[in-house]
Design a binder for these strands. Structure first.
Length: 572
DNA sequence: GCCGTTTTCGGCCCGACTGTTTTCAGTCG
């Protein structure tokens, strides 16, 4: 659905149609991809066109596509344009206009054909192209071929970005510096890294940046911007350097999201203001001081919106009305980490090592949740093993002061929906996470029933990684999420926001669906080694992106109250 | 295509960079 709308936008650009018309389809695609409500429900109740940016025409098209599986307007456009252009525009450097031109002039209908045309020197004879653009296209094609997964996991990019940021901050002359872009918004995947810095002399900062050992080559460099590609996975990094008085507006501009920023510019325009990375100006050209991002939002008479929420999924309306939650869960609120494995099952570090690492992060407790017996591949524990482990947990708790290991389990939810341990064992545990690890192939009805059945076991506290997805490598198993969350709310089952970078499960939209229903959450690290404890930060970010407040997240409570809250949830 | 408490028509966000240009179009973010 979303892809069809984006393709229509491209087709309209290719035809040279009104750019605002094309943009309308992109805006609608953004809107639909960020929905935290079921699209079918919205259509049935005829509420889709009430969303900002979606009107009658696009609503009708979405309805046609949903009911018939086809869209005549899309097919008409597609037929008017040369074959293969949708593949061509995926090549960096090649946009809709040039793609159509090359397709028409040279008859290229694929990236392979385009490469051949470049190598034969035919592209340089097309009006508007030259030898340089031919060489750039070849480089773009190479990049297109190499990048099987064009976006990278948040957790993979963050360490690289923070290293680069530190060296930029340490460059003489730099006043302030920050990451921007989807990385700062903590999106689950990021396409490139944006760094924004302020300094009086950009040139010197760019010189140092381009010499960094991570940099493979410099893509481009101007007065205020420099782009490089890293050795590491072809990652592109853009560095902007501006005067410090423009830092806040530049940071805001390059943090995005584009949709969020676009709406803000519109709001500014209504107030006779013009926002750009170079500051906020009145119509008469006078420049208003914007020392930080909070000041920018104040100028627009709205609450400050944290980066994680800037997706234009309702945060702007809420901030204008003063209804944006002020108590979003934050790293500082977290008392303990949930979901950790040790050498007892498939983890790499001992219980004591895990405990000391958690303590070093400033945490007060850590729930030890090994795999259960059915997870043979992961060294799942038999019930007897579990009792021996409790002895060691007691010893570590005596040794490591200031941090408490909680006795827990990540028990398999079996195919029938039963849990993999007897009730007599489960009732002795402080924290019971139930997860699905095998038999992902069940259909939507079966899988939904399996989970609902598991919720009937009163000893289950937390549903672990609810959809089983692995970002970019395994689809979520089919599930009626509304039904699962409805019953979780009804029965007091807490739901995990798993912070492992390839999981982030629940994902943002589902977090929002959960909190809207009053379902309580835990943020977890799913740690299999000591360094994985830092995954907790990605879980917190995902929860924030889903608008979760401190009170929605149970591991903001101290250990004793956390344990009792899990029980009270199930009892209540 | 969307939108509207000045508008149902006429606006719609803004700028950097590149390469091809003799003044600007395309791409990107």
């Amino acid at each position: 659905m979303v892809q069809i709308l984006r393709d229509i936008s491209l087709f309209l650009q290719m035809k040279g149609e009104n750019p605002f018309r094309s943009r309308a389809y992109d805006i609608a695609a953004d809107r639909i991809s960020g929905l935290s409500e079921d699209l079918g429900t919205l259509l049935r109740e005829d509420r889709l066109k009430e969303l900002p940016g979606i009107g009658q025409a696009i609503s009708d098209k979405v309805a046609e596509l949903m009911s018939t599986g086809r869209l005549s307007a899309y097919e008409t456009l597609r037929a008017e344009l040369p074959a293969g252009v949708l593949e061509l525009v995926r090549v960096p450097e090649l946009g809709p206009k040039k793609a159509v031109l090359l397709a028409r002039e040279l008859g290229v209908d694929s990236v392979d054909a385009l490469e051949k045309a470049c190598r034969e020197g035919r592209v340089r004879h097309v009006a508007g192209f030259g030898e340089k653009s031919e060489a750039n296209l070849l480089a773009g094609i190479e990049l297109y071929r190499r990048s099987t997964t064009p976006r990278r996991l948040l957790g993979d990019v963050m360490p690289v970005a923070e290293r680069l940021l530190t060296s930029v901050k340490n460059t003489p002359g730099v006043v302030r510096a920050s990451v921007g872009g989807s990385l700062r918004r903590r999106a689950e995947t990021v396409g490139d890294v944006d760094l924004i810095a302020s300094a009086a002399e950009p040139g010197a900062v760019f010189d140092a940046f381009c010499r960094a050992p991570e940099v493979a080559h410099v893509i481009g460099r101007g007065e205020s911007k420099c782009s490089v590609r890293l050795h590491d996975k072809d990652l592109q990094v853009d560095l902007r350097v501006l005067p410090d008085e423009d830092f806040a507006t530049a940071l805001h501009h390059f943090t995005g999201s584009r949709a969020h920023h676009l709406r803000l510019r519109g709001l500014a325009q209504d107030r006779g203001l013009k926002i750009s990375e170079w500051g906020v100006h009145r119509a008469d050209g006078t420049k208003l001081p914007v020392p930080d991002e909070a000041a920018l939002y104040r100028l627009l008479d709205m609450q400050y919106i944290p980066p994680e929420l800037r997706e234009d999924t309702g945060e702007i309306e809420a901030a204008l009305a003063g209804k944006l939650p002020e108590d979003l869960v934050a790293w500082e609120d977290i008392q303990g980490a949930v979901h950790a494995h040790s050498t007892w099952s498939d983890g790499r570090n001992s219980l004591e090592e895990m405990a000391r690492a958690a303590q070093a992060l400033g945490l007060k407790f850590l729930t030890v949740t090994e795999h259960s017996e059915a997870a043979i591949y992961a060294g799942g524990l038999k019930e007897d093993d579990l009792r021996r482990q409790w002895d060691e947990i007691d010893r570590v708790n005596d040794t490591v002061k200031g941090l408490r290991l909680l006795k827990g389990i990540e028990v398999d939810i079996l195919e029938s929906g039963a849990l993999d341990y007897s009730d007599s064992v489960l009732e002795q545990l402080e924290v019971v996470i139930g997860s699905i690890h095998v038999r992902h192939g069940m259909d939507e009805d079966q899988m939904t029933r399996r989970l609902l059945q598991a919720f009937d076991n009163p000893h289950l506290h937390i549903l672990g990684h609810p959809t089983g997805r692995l970002i970019q490598s395994r689809d979520p198993y089919p599930l009626r999420m509304e039904a699962v969350l409805d019953k979780a709310a009804e029965r007091g089952v807490v739901v995990e926001v798993n912070g492992k970078p390839e999981r982030l499960d629940l994902k943002t939209e589902h977090v929002r669906m959960a909190t809207q229903r009053g379902v309580k959450l835990v943020v977890s690290c799913d740690a299999h080694r000591a360094s994985d404890l830092e995954n907790l930060a990605f879980a917190v970010a995902t929860a924030r992106r889903g608008w979760a407040r401190r009170s929605d997240v149970l591991n903001t409570l101290p250990a004793e109250r956390f344990i009792s809250a899990l029980r009270e949830q199930r009892a209540g």
